[in-house]
Simulated scan of single mutants.
Amino acid sequence: MTLIISWIGVDDKKEGKEISSIYIASDSRYTWGNAGKFDFGIKVFGSSKYPEIFGFCGDVLFPSTILGQLIPQIDNGLLLNDHDNCDTKNEIISGYIKTSLDTYPKGFLAGTFTILHGTRNGKVFKLFKTSFSPETGIKNEEIELPKVSKKVYSGGSGKTEFDKNWEEWEKEKHNDFRTSRGVYHCLYQTLKSIKDPQTGGLPQIVGLYRNKNSRLFGIVENDKKYIYGKESSENINSTTIEWRNENFERMNPETLKIIEGAQRQPS
């Protein structure tokens, strides 16, 4: 089933508090019941041409197939236009998901699934959730985003353990109270101790800032680099994406040290 979370970062501006970033993160484990596991499964997606990010939990085959179809069409300008607002973009995307599900053999769905869609138009950020269950069918809804940095969604079979841990981060005395990094800290520590056998591996993250399009984040752990849970042993061009450590500090992928001048975060 997995663990998927989303959170926002909020800045203080002269005009008041404004959302400055939105993230979708997940673990990296695919499972086939008790038959086996694969800790390099892709669960978060992003468009390189539009400010659209996605993630899913639950059934693996349908969401991963649909998102694999959506991203190339978005990137090639087939589905969205630059002038579309957030609601219009989600209406198009959720409609695509619904019509695809209409012809999908329901007997091959592994129960339920949820697909998150984060989007931005100008300075406006929005988050939507498309969910399916055999009992209620498919439903699309907007998730309200507050004007404070915090978790805005958690789901999947790892949700119970994450939410229990999250109670500590929600205490005002916590060093990471109401911070964007706090949600990632909780995710990282939850994955290190999680008991749910369907959730595991390293975190994977996509995000949106106020400018440009989706951003993929690499993970640095124990002087090694990971993308989608897999160690990047190949000779990759590491400088094209952002890298973060367990404290969500920005890392130099060539030296594997914290970037000079980057803000250090309490652990």
Score class of each variant (00 low, 15 high):
Asp82Thr: 14
Trp166Met: 10
Phe38Asp: 13
Lys98Glu: 15
Phe62Lys: 05
Ile42Arg: 14
Phe56Met: 03
Asn165Phe: 03
Ser214Glu: 09
Asp11His: 14
Phe128Ala: 03
Gly33Phe: 07
Gly118Asp: 08
Leu208Cys: 13
Ala262Trp: 08
Pro146Tyr: 12
Gln265Asp: 00
Asn222Ser: 15
Met251Glu: 04
Tyr104Ser: 08
Glu221Asn: 14
Phe113Gly: 02
Lys147Tyr: 13
Ser6Tyr: 01
Asp39Trp: 06
Ile42Ala: 09
Lys171Pro: 05
Trp32Ala: 12
Leu216Gly: 03
Ile42Tyr: 04
Lys106Trp: 03
Tyr30Asn: 08
Gly122Glu: 08
Glu254Asn: 12
Phe162Val: 12
Gly200Arg: 05
Met251Asp: 05
Pro203Ser: 13
Phe38Pro: 06
Ser193Arg: 11
Asn237Asp: 15
His185Val: 06
Glu15Gln: 13
Leu127Asp: 01
Glu168Arg: 08
Tyr184Ala: 00
Lys150Glu: 11
Pro72Leu: 07
Ile71Gly: 00
Ser100Lys: 14
Gly55Arg: 05
Asn81Glu: 15
Ile19Asp: 00
Asp11Cys: 09
Tyr209Leu: 08
Val124Lys: 11
Gln189Met: 04
Arg250Ser: 07
Thr88Phe: 02
Asn121Ile: 06
Gly158Glu: 08
Arg210Gln: 13
Leu145Ser: 01
Thr136Leu: 12
Ser233Thr: 12
Trp243Tyr: 08
Lys139Leu: 14
Ile22Gln: 10
Leu80Asp: 01
Asp84Ser: 11
Glu246Gly: 02
Ser6Met: 08
Ser20Gly: 09
Phe177Ser: 07
Lys230Asn: 06
Ile74Pro: 04
Asn76Pro: 02
Ser131Leu: 00
Leu78Thr: 14
Val124His: 10
Gly33Lys: 07
Ile115Ser: 00
Leu145Pro: 06
Asp176Ala: 15
Ser47Asp: 11
Gly218Met: 09
Asp196Ser: 07
Ile66Gln: 06
Pro134Glu: 13
Lys225Met: 12
Gln265Pro: 00
Phe248Gln: 01
His83Thr: 15
Phe108Gly: 07
Tyr104Glu: 09
Phe108Arg: 10
Thr136Gln: 13
Ile4Tyr: 02
Lys37Ile: 14
